[in-house]
């Protein structure tokens, strides 16, 4: 279910490493919890973020949730498709529903993140 090539956080973001950059989104679990997403608050490129700092927010019919940066870095791009079709996050949370692209400041921070198997175990724990 959860791709092996991604890193995961306890707040239900995923991170995909692409060279010196990282693509970040929210997990399938997170989008299911939120339900139909209708609005995404995106950051401007150039914004510098600390790890666990809010990148922006994702709003569904029934709730709003902040999205946190899994690692420190600078926003290189935000997924502008989401302005018109925010439900890409529901349809393809780990792919076309990506939220931002970051230039990673310190790759050692990746060690603080979970791999797919650990994230799945973490989710099982939440459901009990």
């Amino acid at each position: 279910m959860y791709p092996d090539n991604l890193y995961y956080t306890k707040d239900h973001e995923w991170l995909k490493l692409e060279g010196e950059e990282a693509v970040v989104g929210i997990t399938d679990f997170a989008q299911k919890q939120l339900g139909d997403i209708i609005y995404v608050d995106l950051p401007q490129p150039g914004k510098v973020l600390e790890a666990r700092q809010a990148i922006g927010s994702v709003e569904s019919v029934k709730s709003v949730s902040d999205v946190y940066s899994p690692v420190s870095g600078e926003v290189v791009a935000a997924n502008s498709e989401l302005a018109q079709t925010p439900d890409l996050i529901n349809k393809d949370p780990h792919g076309q529903g990506w939220i931002v692209r970051l230039k990673i400041k310190d790759k050692s921070e990746l060690n603080n993140l979970m791999k797919a198997a650990d994230y799945e175990k973490y989710l099982e724990g939440l459901e009990h």
């Binding site: 299911k32 339900g35 139909d36 209708i38 569904s60 019919v61 029934k62 529901n90």
Partner: peptide
């Protein structure tokens, strides 16, 4: 998806609120 509402375990959504 079930949630607690007024002391009952109730369905909050099946396919999605908008649908």
């Amino acid at each position: 998806r079930m949630v607690e509402f007024a002391g009952f375990e109730m369905p909050v959504e099946y396919k999605g609120i908008i649908d």
